[in-house]
């Protein structure tokens, strides 16, 4: 609760500063609208914002699901097979070295202006953090567990399934929480490059028409959406981990 109050306090200070800058500097409204106006616009346009929020939220959620599944599958393949590690790891690192944003235009060209290209962006952005977090967890199984499995005559695949995967679930949880932070970035970049819907699209549109208040309203909605998403993923993973590995 204290953390919540602290956050609220910081937010109030930021809003106060913002209002002070607007009042004292005489900056035009289309450059920096006062917070009260942004709030007014936000309330007035809530139906419009909700409509675009739904689109962006869908992109993020599907991106998380698909990216999560791909990341989990890749990490397990890497952990299971030496050949996969030798061949795929350099590829993975190379793809991560490419700025994913640079791929947004080509993804839009290939997948069109609809959901597909945005989901692909979100997937590309979260794929590596999930793969890497889960893979690290899979490679850091306590050695005593592996010794035990060996003396029990376990096969490599059953050791992976019964010991290494469950032991790596907390690491996967960290990867998923990180992905929840990254996924909205991917979706919004995708919308900026080419779309007709979503909060990113709305921000560009508002900006282009000098409706800076609406731009800020969309930005804050995106911020709220991202925070809600993070809290949801965080809550789900922690609740699940507490059941799975209590006391850990």
């Amino acid at each position: 609760m204290n953390r919540f109050l602290g956050g609220l306090f910081a937010l109030l200070i930021a809003l106060g500063l913002w209002q002070a800058i607007v009042s004292l500097s005489d900056v035009p409204r289309f450059i920096l609208p006062p917070p009260a106006l942004v709030f007014e616009t936000w309330m007035a346009n809530r139906a419009l914002l909700a409509e675009h929020t739904l689109v962006t939220a869908t992109e993020i959620a599907l991106g998380l699901l698909i990216g999560g599944a791909l990341g989990i599958a890749t990490a397990m393949a890497l952990a299971a097979s030496e050949i996969a590690r030798v061949t795929m790891r350099p590829v993975l690192v190379f793809t991560q070295a490419l700025p994913v944003f640079a791929l947004a235009p080509i993804l839009t060209l290939w997948l069109g202006f609809g959901l597909g290209s945005k989901i692909a962006m979100a997937v590309l952005i979260i794929y590596f953090p999930i793969t890497s977090a889960f893979f690290d967890g899979l490679m850091r199984t306590p050695s005593g567990f592996l010794d035990l499995a060996r003396t029990m005559g376990a096969s490599r695949s059953s050791t992976l399934w019964h010991i290494r995967v469950p032991a790596a679930l907390p690491a996967l949880g960290s990867g998923l929480r990180l992905a929840a932070v990254y996924a909205p970035i991917g979706a919004v970049i995708g919308e900026w490059v080419g779309s007709s819907q979503g909060l990113g699209y709305l921000m560009l549109l508002a900006n282009g028409r000098a409706k800076t208040d609406l731009m800020f309203a969309a930005l804050f909605t995106l911020g709220l959406l991202s925070i809600a998403l993070y809290l949801a993923v965080n809550w789900i993973t922690l609740a699940w981990l507490r059941r799975h590995t209590p006391g850990a």
Binding site: F145, L148, A167, H244
Partner: peptide, 15 residues
Amino acid sequence: GRVAYMAQSDLLLPW
């Protein structure tokens, strides 16, 4: 296949 092993750490799977 004829050996069982017990260590100082109990090696119980926490989950």
